[in-house]
Design a protein around this nucleic acid. Structure first.
Length: 123
DNA sequence: ACAGTGACAACAT
DNA sequence: TATGTTGCCACTG
């Protein structure tokens, strides 16, 4: 288990994304009060791969996070982007052939400050 | 302690 | 519009 660090906060927010919706790395970073930490958010999601056996992280819908343009930006097309597109499709999110998603249609509204307070367990 | 890394984003050509 | 460059941040060895 890990203490409530940045990663945990990222996972907490991602868990709140409803099925059928998506958001971006940068938006998550902004919600956490670190508007320039988009890259770190991507790093956090990437780290999920090393936590696959842990049930605590099995419910993190990482596939609902895309880049600011609404495009799946995993470099590893074969094992990453393709899988992400597939998972999103199963949730009803339309992904074009070039891995593009219509943000006007599927973008998650995000959390409000009070809700954030609720999900982020602090010391 | 320090330099390298990456599922980003904004800006500049 | 399409690339290229730079700034950012948190984590890792």
């Amino acid at each position: 288990m890990t203490e409530p660090n940045f990663y945990e906060q990222v996972y907490a927010v991602v868990r709140c994304i409803p099925s059928g919706n998506v958001t971006s790395y940068g938006r998550i970073a902004k919600m956490l009060g670190a508007p320039n930490a988009a890259r770190a958010v991507g790093y956090a999601l990437r780290a999920l791969k090393d936590r696959q056996g842990d049930p605590d992280y099995a419910d993190v819908p990482w596939q609902r996070v895309v880049n600011s343009q609404g495009r799946i930006s995993i470099v590893n097309r074969e094992y990453g982007a393709q899988l992400q597109a597939k998972l999103l499709g199963e949730e009803g999110v339309v992904v074009s052939e070039d891995l593009q998603i219509n943000l006007d249609r599927y973008l998650w509204s995000g959390l409000h400050w009070l809700e954030l307070d609720d999900i982020i367990t602090g010391p």
